[in-house]
């Protein structure tokens, strides 16, 4: 998947996302591979908030909004309905934030993965509940300062490590799962294409930095998304045919290079 071969046409445009939003970039890039024969299912979170406020229609594909816990449950319904309509060729793509995936949406996701429905689930991970004001989620990394893990005399920020979602979904023995970062778009897009080819459920978890939530200047989004991988704070990996593959990216750097640029880790460096 070469970036220069991607279609010019944008399938998400005119969103209200902040400048430098990693999440909207993740969605925009994925849609370039997924194409028009796609239905998006999404839930409350920044993505829904910045794309689908009536009469706004930032998506040029149909978008089914659903309640916060229910992305994957609604996916199963859409898949079943399209099957009855004889429109199985349409790709059903669930997109949720980390909160909507690893916390409140996990039960529904587990159910849909186990049922083996044919769909792609993309978690854009900005490592907290951004839409509601940067509260911690199960995907918040150890030590991060959030509004519900505020650093103070008795707290050094989030006190638990990030939930390992890749292994959780892999335990359902699905066709394909991968982590990605918007800092490595070619790798991410290759994975989206692979997910499209998978028979059954496929899962992508893409690290998507958030300037206001992490506390950094908006032009650093892509750099941070690369640094996360180069410092080992985030790993690029794939799960396929029952095997995990961790990808080496080179240019290793110390964790402090990643932490030093973000206000949420200021108390650690």
């Amino acid at each position: 998947m070469k970036i220069k071969d991607l279609p010019q046409e944008e399938l998400v445009t005119g969103s209200y996302a902040c400048a430098g939003c990693g999440g909207i970039l993740a969605v925009r890039l994925a849609l370039k591979v997924l194409g028009k024969n796609t239905v998006i299912v999404t839930t409350p979170g920044c993505l829904l908030g910045v794309t689908t406020f009536y009469p706004q229609l930032a998506f040029k594909v149909p978008c089914v909004n659903i309640t916060f816990p229910s992305t994957a449950a609604a996916i199963s319904g859409v898949v079943a309905g399209l099957k009855k309509r004889g429109r199985e060729g349409i790709k059903v793509v669930g997109i949720a934030g980390d909160g909507g995936t690893v916390d409140i949406g996990l039960q529904a996701l587990s159910g849909a993965l186990e049922r083996g429905d044919n769909f792609i689930f993309i978690c854009y991970d900005n490592e907290a509940y951004m839409n509601t004001g940067v509260q911690r989620s199960g995907a918040t990394p150890l030590g991060a300062n959030t509004t519900t893990t505020p650093v103070g005399k008795n707290s050094r920020g989030e006190d638990r490590p990030k939930k390992d979602m890749l292994r959780i979904v892999a335990a359902h023995d699905i066709a394909y799962a991968a982590t990605a970062s918007i800092g490595y778009p070619a790798d991410y897009l290759r994975k989206v294409a692979k997910a499209m080819q998978a028979r059954g459920a496929a899962y992508l978890h893409v690290l998507s930095p958030c300037p206001p939530g992490w506390g950094y200047a908006s032009e650093l989004t892509v750099e941070l998304a690369r640094l996360a991988v180069q410092t080992g704070a985030w790993q690029l990996a794939e799960y396929e045919g029952g095997e995990f593959k961790i990808q080496k990216v080179g240019r290793e750097k110390p964790l402090s290079a990643y932490y030093a640029l973000q206000a949420r880790f200021a108390h650690l460096v």
Binding site: S70, A74, I75, S76, V78, A108, G111, E114
Partner: peptide, 16 residues
Amino acid sequence: ESEHAALAACYGAAVT
């Protein structure tokens, strides 16, 4: 896997 999901799935199917 739950009633909440049952109705969410019904909703997803209904929109088609």
